[in-house]
Simulated assay, not measured.
Amino acid sequence: MSVTNTTRAERRPAKARKSPLREWFDSILFAVVAATLIRWLFMEAFTIPTPSMENSLMVGDFLFVSKLHYGTRTPQTPLQVPLTHQKIWGTNIPSYSTAIQLPSYRLPGFTHVKNGDVVVFNVPPRYLNDGIDYPTDLKTNYIKRCIGIPGDKLEIKQRVVYVNGTVMPAPPRSEQRYFIRTSEALDANFFRKYDIVNDYRDLNQPTENWKPQEQYNDSTKATSLVGYTVNTTADVIEKFRSFDWVKGIEPLIDKPGETMPSIYGAPTFHWNHDNFGPLVVPKKGATTPINAETIAVYGPVIEQYEHNDNVKLTPTSITIDGKPITSYTFKQDYYFMMGDNRDNSLDSRFWGFVPEDHIVGKAVFVWMSIDPNPANLWNKIRWNRLFRIID
């Protein structure tokens, strides 16, 4: 009689081999889970769709935004298709359910939002979210530069920003609007050489009522000038001044006291986008008296972003849960944001403050930049913008 020795491992039943379809499914599932965690905890990719941050950020820039700098927010809306925001890709079908809404907390970060930071945030007003009351973490993402942090006293005078009485220098590549008269017609290719792609307009108007710095004896020559409005940087304007065919340049600035109805605080305050404030950015724990002037700037904050129940707001009074209040203490910090393209940016000058719980992260660097309207195929990629640090 023979005896065969078998090990324990040999007595185990063999595992069934995964089918190719199961292997693909497992790989995709792992990739989705990993990407979702990275996107939530560490870093998220965004693209720039509008020129409000030009020339610091261009339309077609792809950038990474750090969640670690200011601390990651815990999800408020957990029932959501992974790697989506508001809609399922390519459809108008909502990608989320509000059946479960959780309180949102911010994990510790290694810094706080500072003056001058380029910040991605969920834009607060309903009308900028397609008129839909999205949960905070699903509101439309905006990117702007932080001009005022909690407690700052902010004022804009003739385009110059003052924070706590001190001039805040404009970002080096920020743009503003100018009116230019030339003796030559300019085309898109000319403006493209100076990165003026989205913000120029050919006025092509007679100039009898416009007097450039240089005066002309030849009236025929003067009335043959061509007019352009451009949004560009101060450095480009200095280059334009050196061209002998540029006959006059002047900044287009709103006058103090001219009321712009769409500006935040109107009609109580006679502000416009070049002359705004002064006002203090709300700070957690700070108390403000309630009157017609403070209601104009802080009333929407108290009503919409402070998580108060049953708020009734009038131009002269605020009641919370049926009780009129004479002062109010803010429950969270707020920020004031502006685009670097100062004359083509829908920012805090128009819709107010950004609450702390709307902050998404800090823009870190551009990893790719694609020109949506290139002069040729080689220039489709803006090579000089690849891996540019955002400052």
Rank of each mutant, 00 (worst) to 15 (best):
L313Q: 10
L313K: 12
E214M: 12
W383S: 05
T98G: 02
Y70D: 04
F350E: 06
E155G: 02
V167W: 08
H85N: 10
V161C: 00
P171Y: 03
A34V: 15
K312A: 12
W24M: 14
I93Y: 04
L203K: 03
P94W: 03
G151M: 03
K323G: 01
E306A: 08
M368V: 03
D61G: 08
G277V: 05
E250Y: 07
G361L: 01
G361T: 03
T140D: 15
V160C: 06
V160Q: 14
L128Q: 13
F240A: 07
I263T: 15
Q205I: 14
N310S: 14
I237Q: 00
K114P: 01
F191N: 01
E293A: 13
T4P: 04
L37E: 11
V33L: 15
V297E: 03
H85W: 13
P256F: 04
V160F: 06
G131Y: 10
N308P: 08
P172I: 08
N209A: 07
G90K: 05
K87G: 01
K331R: 13
P282D: 10
T91I: 04
K323S: 06
A296G: 10
V281Y: 00
N308W: 07
F269A: 10
M260G: 11
A35R: 08
T223Q: 14
K255D: 08
K284M: 13
S348L: 01
K312F: 11
N310V: 08
V197S: 04
S242F: 06
P124I: 05
